[in-house]
């Protein structure tokens, strides 16, 4: 992620909007509606693009570079995290041309371990903070969680919004929390997780996107991976439309991260097509688009090998970490 961080995006542009609960509500509810059926149809149509040969090779390498290799389990141990970090740096030990993943994504207590392995490899450490995954804790605890992770060396913080507050219409509270966490991040980049499976409607996803962008999130992210459905093509499309429109309005780019449920190369390529055609080619970069995934990486590697050798590979030829 590039580090030319500026002050919060909302500086100036959104002051009127974010100054009160009522103005925030008026703005968010004044955003154009999303027709679910039309959005689903458009996402499905983009999914029919046929990406072959050179385009496929390009897409697979790009997708590998966009992976936030993730482990977020109660059973995570330093051993597990070290293995994952090694995998992120050298996804295919047999092939030095294979690019590294973007980051490893872990709980805050595993940040130091991950950082130790990754060193200055260029692979970032992302930490899920703010009482992940439910977000149900007092603000000071969320902020402490964030600071801990940053102090341990996290380059990126994946926070969750308070869905309860959002669904109850307390947008100001959600906004203020994001602003506060962003401040606690210091120089670390902030990804704001909506848990779109709980927000349910695309209208809500669009509102949450704008709320997070105005509050200064560097990335907007679909899901924790703990709630079904996690990332979907249409939800990601709504978010890509939001970052596209936000840039139209402010000139500033925000990244998008679908997370959870993306397991196959074929699916990852559909996302990249969508990035390309909805937000635009500028977002086809690990600085601006990530996949939160674990098993996806091996499938990308298998496809990569297939493209190089012309024969189908098998899981035994790739590391399980």
């Amino acid at each position: 992620m590039t580090t030319t961080s500026a002050s919060t995006a909302s500086a100036g542009v959104f002051d009127d909007i974010t100054s009160s609960e009522s103005s925030l509500r008026r703005f968010l509810h004044g955003l154009p509606g999303v027709d679910q059926v039309g959005a689903d149809a458009r996402a499905a149509a983009l999914g029919t693009r046929s990406i072959k040969t050179t385009a496929k090779a390009f897409a697979i390498d790009l997708a590998i570079r966009m992976v936030d290799l993730t482990t977020l389990e109660g059973q995570d141990t330093p051993g597990k995290v070290r293995a994952l970090a090694s995998k992120a740096m050298r996804p295919d030990p047999a092939d030095p041309t294979c690019p590294a993943a973007a980051a490893v994504c872990v709980y805050p207590d595993m940040v130091a371990t991950a950082k130790q392995t990754l060193g200055d490899s260029g692979v970032n450490v992302a930490a899920v903070a703010t009482a992940f995954p439910s977000g149900r804790a007092a603000l000071d605890i969320k902020l402490a969680d964030t600071r801990d992770a940053v102090e341990a060396g996290a380059d990126e913080i994946d926070m969750v919004i308070d869905r309860g507050a959002f669904l109850a219409g307390r947008y100001q509270q959600v906004y203020d929390e994001i602003v506060a966490v962003r401040e606690a991040c210091g120089s670390a980049h902030l990804k704001v997780i909506f848990e779109t499976g709980e927000l349910q409607t695309y209208d809500n996803v669009r509102r949450a996107s704008w709320l997070a962008m105005m509050a200064g999130g560097h990335f907007i992210k679909t899901s924790t991976g703990k709630v079904q459905p996690a990332a979907t093509l249409p939800v990601t499309m709504i978010m890509l439309e939001a970052v596209r429109d936000f840039r139209e309005m402010t000139g500033q780019m925000v990244g998008v991260k679908p997370a959870g449920g993306i397991r196959a190369s074929k699916d990852a390529i559909k996302y990249l097509v969508m990035v390309n055609e909805v937000a635009g080619a500028d977002w086809l970069d690990p600085d601006w688009f990530r996949f939160g995934a674990s098993t996806l990486l091996n499938d990308l590697l298998m496809q990569r090998t297939k493209m190089q050798t012309g024969r189908y590979s098998g899981p035994d030829y790739f590391t399980l970490d």
């Binding site: 590039t2 030319t4 961080s5 500026a6 919060t8 995006a9 693009r49 046929s50 990406i51 072959k52 040969t53 050179t54 385009a55 496929k56 390009f58 897409a59 790009l62 200064g216 560097h218 840039r247 000139g251 500033q252 780019m253 925000v254 990249l272 097509v273 390309n276 080619a281 500028d282 086809l284 970069d285 600085d287």
Partner: peptide, 18 residues
Amino acid sequence: MVKVPDTATPFFEYAPAP
């Protein structure tokens, strides 16, 4: 938040898929 990059991003050119 960063400004729009000046450098051209690699173009995702769809290869022919007849």
